[in-house]
């Protein structure tokens, strides 16, 4: 890890840094949603500030890229504090350091990343389809099938992914017809997976996406990492941060179910 994370200035050694890193990575991996279906480019390093994004069109029968547009990588962050008392207990007793604050910060950062990505996907989607009430067992299948048909008609083949709120996920899991769960039927349509997302960006809508880096991808400059900010009195302050940009190249690959 380079110096810019100022780790050597912290009043503890590599063992504790390893525990903080492990906690951050574990919580991020458990919490992040969009990285499970959006392909990732990178991590390219903190020094990367812009990512080229090409548009595509057909000219004279040939598909060609337009001039690139440069997207700035956005930095997002979450901070945590380790109290002097915590560090003292960890140092002088057999209890070890409680990393709850690290976990909460990592979770907050992961939620912000998802909000950014899923919000952009919703905003840039070119296609919409009817969500319906999902009151009857056949409703979810019909809604998703209509969306995938729309995507396919636009030339966007599968695998598809479905992103929906936990409430809708629960509804999907609960509907049963003739011994078959609505979930199982829908799973056959969305081989890329069904993902629950609880943030505001989606609300009561759902997303059906044609997966592939040529449709959209996530450029990561600095991947999620923890830096030491310095002390606040006797307490120690840290920042978990990352830099990223979502590139939606073909917005037709995204369908919002409203």
């Amino acid at each position: 890890m380079s110096d810019y994370l100022q780790r050597e200035m912290a009043p503890f050694g590599p063992d504790l840094w390893a525990k903080i890193d492990e906690m951050v990575v574990t919580v991020a991996k458990r919490t992040l949603v969009a990285r499970r279906f959006v392909e990732l480019v990178g991590p390219l390093g903190w020094g990367i500030e812009m990512a080229p994004k090409f548009g595509f069109a057909t000219e004279g029968g040939a598909a060609v890229a337009s001039d690139p547009q440069y997207l700035p990588l956005k930095e997002i962050q979450a901070e945590f504090v380790l109290k002097a008392k915590q560090l003292a207990i960890a140092d002088k007793t057999p209890f070890g350091l409680d990393l709850g604050a690290v976990a909460i910060a990592a979770m907050n950062l992961a939620k912000e990343e998802d909000e950014l990505i899923i919000g952009s996907l919703v905003k840039q989607a070119k296609s919409t389809s009817e969500l319906g009430s999902w009151a009857m067992p056949v409703d979810p299948f019909q809604a998703v099938a209509t969306a995938t048909a729309k995507l396919l008609a636009g030339g966007f083949a599968g695998p598809y992914a479905l992103v929906l709120s936990p409430e809708m996920y629960a509804r999907l899991a609960g509907l049963i017809q003739q011994g078959m769960r609505a979930m199982e039927m829908v799973e056959k349509l969305v081989k890329g997976g069904i993902f629950q997302y609880s943030g505001k960006a989606l609300g009561e809508q759902a997303l059906v996406l044609s997966l592939g880096a040529w449709n959209f991808d996530l450029v990561v400059g600095q991947d999620i990492a923890t830096a030491y900010l310095g002390n606040e009195g006797l307490d120690q302050k840290f920042r978990i941060f990352e830099t990223l940009a979502l590139r939606v190249k073909l917005p037709g690959a995204i369908c919002v179910l409203k």
Binding site: V25, L32, R35, R36, L40
Partner: peptide, 11 residues
Amino acid sequence: PVPSVGSLIGQ
């Protein structure tokens, strides 16, 4: 050598 979150596709 350094833990990284990276891509979670397929997880």
